[in-house]
Amino acid sequence: MTAATVVMDKSAPTRPRYGSMSRDRRWALRWSYFFLVLFAIFFLTPPLYMFITSLKTSAEISAATNPWWVYHPSLTNYIELLTSSTYIIFFRNSAIVSIFVVCITMIISVPAAFALARMKFWGSAVLATGVFLTYLIPDTLLFIPLFKMFAVFNEWTDIQLINKWWVLLIVYPTLTVPFCTWIMIGYFASIPKELDEAALMDGANYRQILFKIFIPVALPGLIAATIFAFTVSWAQFLYPLAFTTSPDQLVLPVGIITTLIKGDVFNWGQIMTGALLGAAPPLIIYAFLMDYYIAGLTAGATKG
C-alpha cells in the first residue's frame, strides 16, 4: 500500500489523488508471488534433497561432491528397501495402525461431537472445553504416565501391553479423539438448529438425524478430521518409540530410524528412500480427498 501511494505522489501532484485498483492489485499479486515462492523453496527443499540422496549410492553420498547433483543415479536403495521384509513389515504395521486408528477415532469422535454440540445436557459445555484441553497436553508429557499405567495393568492382569503394535490402537486415540471431536463439534454446531428440528418433525430419532442429516451435511468436516487422524497416526514417532521395541512390532518412522542406523553407521541413502516412500500414502490420500474436501466446502456456500 505504501509503495502505491509513493508512486501516485510523483505522477500527479496537482490532480486529486485517486487510488488505482489495478495498480493495487498488481502490487498485491507481486507480494503474494514473492512469499509463495519463498515458502515453496523453504518447504520443498528438504523433500527434494531426500529425493536426490535416495538416488545415490552410499559411496557417492560420503564422497566430497556437489550434494545437490546425482552423478551416478541408481535405484539400489529403492530395490533393497522394497525387497527387505522388515521394511514391508513396518509399512504394513503403519498402514494397519493408521487405518484402525482413523476408524476408532471416527467411531468415538462423531457421536461424541454430536452429543456435545446438540444434546444440551448438564455439563456438556464444560465437557466440550475439557475435550479440547486434553488435546493441549503434549504427548511428550503423556507417554510416561501411559507407560506407568500399562505397567500397573501388567502387574494386575499379567497381560503384556508393551511391545505390541496393537497397543498403539489404544494409545494414538488419546491424541486424535480430542482434536477430531473438537473439529466435529465446530462443524455440527454450524448446522442450523432448524435442520434437526425439521428432521425431528419428519419423524427422525437422534440416530437417524446423525446418520442421515448431520454426517452428510458435515462431510467436509468429517474428511478434515479423517485426514488429521490419519496424518497424526502415520507420522507419530514418540509413542511407538516408547511402546514398541522388537522389529516385527515397529511402525515406519521408528523402524526406519532404528533398523537403518547400525551403531554409528548411518545408511543415509536408505533412510532417505524409506522416508520418501513413507510420505507417499498421506500424499495420495490428500490428493484424493482434497478435491472432494474443497468441493464440499464451496458447494452451497452462497445464498441463492
Partner: peptide
C-alpha cells in the same frame, strides 16, 4: 416426542436438507 405427534412444520429459513 415430536415424531409421534404427527404434525408437520414449515420453518422461517425453510430448513431444507442441503444434501
Amino acid at each position: 416426542p415430536p415424531k409421534d405427534r404427527d404434525m408437520a412444520m414449515v420453518f422461517q429459513n425453510y430448513a431444507l436438507y442441503p444434501h
